[in-house]
Design a binder for these strands. Structure first.
Lengths: 343, 343
DNA sequence: TTGTATGCGTTATCAT
DNA sequence: ATGATAACGCATACAA
């Protein structure tokens, strides 16, 4: 039964002895077709192995069944699980996932914009925290879009992510409960919104603990392992040391842990460290890293669900969906050491 | 200049005062168009912001500019960098990447097959080591396909990956050079071809070292961290222990290291451990893991280049492209301890 | 060198 | 309930 070229709707119509219009109806609006004919059509479809030609369908409909997912870095440990959530939800609704990564290069972003303009993608998921298309007027004719992981700060785009403020707050609170007061915050100057929110959580926690702003240490990195290490070095050039490091993300925390290890310190004996994200590596550090878990699969699923809703024409009920961050207690936090208090 | 609906080739033709055929030619075969007209067309394109409607083009051509990439698990630490390589190469040739993951579920595989049948993807990259489509006759009408990372054992599909035998050989040789003779191999019974090849390398190395087959210890896991740990437990129930563990991949090695750590042993003081793949985590283990690096980005790039070649009609010059695996020496290997020799 | 006209496979409108 | 047909936007065979 395998013909050289794939079966078209006409092949099905011929075999079922109906018109192509009826075949189309039998597929998309079965209730508008007589039971008997529907049966014939289904049989013909089975015989031919017919599948709708998505190209023709999209051309006719003026809309594709693809969603473009743009990320700055496919290798980001946070990305893959979010992608899983996105993909599952999309697939179960008949949508496919198109992938692009920008390396933070607006030029690259522009290339992906072509997918949008050429009707190859009906919607857009942004993992970048920023519209990666330069500041063209093109922004205007963007398809339905949803940001994940980081709020998109230069476009009025709905966002699905974790509650950064609450997450950071949980981390500080743990540290404070263990008795820490000198808690350094190592931030990330790139991911502005996520950074500032986690910073807000940090400040709120220390406010509540009665630690005056003057006694807080803030350093800024760029969210990489290397920057965590660098920030640590800067800190060690000062005259007072914190007893704990609260890091804006796990990568930074890993950098801090490496730096601390290189200096011969014990974690958590000498210093406590917390991260944010709960990337896979966090489990395998020595000691394992206490951190805040991002519900990544859930974020992906929720974001895609929202996008599909937008695609179906409904207005978004809310512009921001914040999921609950969980504190994952492992072995990088304990009560503060007295050792460096008065150094 | 922003019209409500995207510009079509007709808009361009009208403004340039030529026919749509000329516009099409000016775009795809500029040499067949007079300089002056080409100029007019380009101006009109600039004015309208015209982009080719990919749907219409694909419909007409009977072929899309999408490549479907199917992986069992998007979260596999090996996957993302290969994807980067694939994506870069594809994009620079005007192709996009469509993503699917199967969770090793043939049912899922079938769903992705629809992308192929419906002409949404012109080619296929398989990360699965197996055709994920059940054993349908559909295999026959597969588009040009290339396997990466693992040879596809049930289809005559070209393959791009690392030289597993040579890689494994480098690992054993290092161990042997350090003085080990009792080297256990912890394999993976799932990924049959990669497993058996790495196993071959192991055997070849021990053959060369004069270690008789009877003195070799082989355990099989399934390539997960947990299975590495499990294999270790099995090993400890025997009466003789190896001095080194050569693991089929990094995940397994990590499991072994965790298990060894839990039993209070020192690595590499008491036991040496090697992995394979050089996943990001390998660097951050304590001790850092000596392993074999997969040139992942290069694999992706090379595989996509091969696929695009296939797509353009040329026969593949070779059916298997093996890249060079590099030995990455870190801190999990040293000379064997005497401690457990005669237990 | 350029233009006219056809068809790719679908869905939707309008008849019947 | 069903059929005939137009249109989606494009690339190309053929004519000029």
């Amino acid at each position: 039964m395998s013909s050289s070229s794939p079966a078209t709707i006409e092949d099905v119509a011929r075999i079922a002895q109906v018109s192509i219009a009826t075949v189309s109806r039998a597929i998309h609006t079965p209730e508008k077709v007589a039971n008997s004919t529907r049966l014939k059509v289904n049989q013909a479809i089975a015989i031919t192995g017919y599948t709708t030609n998505a190209m023709a369908r999209s051309l006719r409909l003026g809309r594709s069944n693809m969603i473009l997912v743009v990320a700055p870095d496919i290798g980001d440990p946070n990305f893959s699980n979010i992608l899983v959530g996105l993909e599952n939800e999309a697939r179960s609704h008949g949508y496919g996932i198109l992938i692009g990564h920008t390396h933070n290069d607006p030029q690259r972003g522009l290339e992906y914009l072509k997918f949008l303009n050429s009707n190859q993608a009906a919607g857009l998921i942004l993992f970048t925290g920023i519209l990666p298309f330069g500041h063209q007027s093109m922004t205007a004719r963007l398809p339905p879009s949803v940001g994940v992981f980081e709020p998109v700060y230069n476009g009025g785009i709905p966002y699905v992510g974790v509650d950064d403020i609450e997450g950071a707050r949980k981390a500080v609170d743990l540290l404070v409960a263990e008795g820490h007061r000198k808690i350094a915050f190592i931030g990330d100057s790139r991911t502005r919104l996520a950074y500032s929110r986690r910073r807000q959580g940090y400040d709120a926690g220390l406010d509540a603990a009665g630690v005056p702003p003057g006694e807080r240490t803030i350093l800024e990195g760029d969210g990489t392992i290397e920057s965590g290490r660098l920030a640590l070095e800067q800190l060690f050039m000062r005259d007072t040391l914190p007893t704990a490091f609260m890091c804006v993300n796990d990568q930074t925390a890993i950098g801090v842990m490496i730096g601390l290890g290189a200096r011969g310190y014990d974690i958590p004996g000498d210093f406590s460290v917390t991260g944010f994200d709960d990337v896979p590596q966090a489990t395998f550090m020595t000691p394992s890293l206490t951190t805040i878990r991002q519900p990544r699969t859930a974020i992906g699923k929720s974001a895609m669900a929202l996008l599909l809703e937008l695609l179906s024409g409904s207005e978004p009920p809310e512009t921001e969906i914040l999921l609950r961050p969980d504190l994952i207690v492992r072995n990088s936090v304990t009560a503060p050491s007295r050792r460096f208090q008065k150094r």
